[in-house]
């Protein structure tokens, strides 16, 4: 946990030292004197070790340095103003994605090897295969440009602005959870206890939802970590395409402009987020059902 984060921030820091190019966008126009002044101002003229210590102490205090590009704003402030839209999109996408995915997975499993299974599975494969930026552009073209139902982009229309980007982001978790639940549910539907439930005369839907659903869905938390990670990735392109002023869009901008401190800050933020999600998954694992620990154990080994 802490080790992971420490390692990440240190490695990030070291890598940044090796970064080619200069953080000052308008490099050509700067004289050497100006550069020296700026380097001094940002502490970039000190020995690397000193810079490192400064930085790490700062990070521990929640100070991520200042952006070298965006009007000298503190990185933490940039994050604060931009995290709202990203979190909203992420949560909406995760909810839409998993709920729809679970439904699809159940339908697939329940009608295994019928046309309904084939079509839902195909849909899930499409969702998992078509790159989400292509999907995002499709959504934008169809619902915003052609039908004009929803805004093309920007974040100035409240909830309406969030619909298309959420959908675009949701496609990956949707596909992932649909495939995952399908396999889980097929396993569950072939299990002894479901056989016993059938032998008491309950119908297939009751079997699937009342007896099977919980057993199939609980293991879904094991892929929550990877799903969140892929949402992070997705947010970069989706926020860019829909011009959402979020973290992902900022990250892309910072990368393209060599904005050291912002890149580092966001890297640490992303890693922290993922580490927290993994931690939550671990806790859920233990809390939800002691049986899960057994299953998890046998599944991993």
């Amino acid at each position: 946990m802490i080790v992971t984060l420490l390692l990440i921030s240190s490695v990030t820091f070291l890598l940044m030292q090796k970064l080619p190019g200069s953080p000052y966008g308008n490099e050509e126009k700067l004289t050497n004197v100006q550069k020296a002044v700026m380097n001094h101002q940002y502490g970039l003229d000190k020995p690397v070790v000193v810079q490192y210590l400064y930085y790490m102490v700062g990070v521990a205090k929640g100070n991520l340095g200042v952006s070298l590009q965006f009007g000298n704003q503190p990185v933490s402030k940039i994050i604060a103003t931009r995290i709202g839209p990203s979190v909203q999109l992420g949560i909406q996408a995760l909810i839409i994605g998993t709920v729809v995915g679970i439904l699809f997975g159940i339908i697939s499993a329940r009608f295994q090897n019928t046309w309904l299974d084939t079509s839902t599975s195909l849909f899930a494969i499409l969702g998992g295969s078509v790159p989400n930026f292509v999907f995002a552009v499709l959504l934008q073209l169809f619902f915003a440009i052609d039908l004009k139902w929803l805004p093309i982009g920007l974040w100035d229309n409240g909830f309406a602005s969030s619909i298309l980007p959420s959908l675009a982001l949701a496609i990956t978790p949707m596909a992932d959870s649909a495939r995952f639940i399908r396999t889980e549910m097929i396993d569950v539907l072939h299990s002894d206890y479901i056989e016993l439930a059938r032998s008491t005369g309950v119908d297939e839907w009751t079997v699937a939802f009342r007896y099977g659903l919980r057993n199939a869905v609980i293991p879904l938390i094991t892929i929550l970590g990877p799903m969140v990670a892929s949402l992070l990735t997705g947010s970069l392109v989706v926020e860019q395409i829909f011009a959402v002023p979020g973290i992902g869009e900022q990250f892309t901008k910072s990368i393209l402009s060599n904005d050291y401190f912002t890149i580092m800050g966001l890297t640490i933020l992303y890693s922290t987020l993922l580490v927290i999600v993994i931690l939550i998954v671990d806790i859920l694992y233990v809390l939800i059902d002691p049986r899960i620990r057994l299953i998890g154990g046998t599944r991993d080994e």
């Binding site: 990440i8 990670a229 992070l232 990735t233 890149i263 992303y270 890693s271 580490v275 993994i278």
Partner: peptide
């Protein structure tokens, strides 16, 4: 694996 793949890749490409 605690590090988001995205971050790893982006950093590698920057360097």
């Amino acid at each position: 694996s605690g590090v988001p793949t995205l971050v790893v890749v982006v950093l590698m490409l920057l360097i």
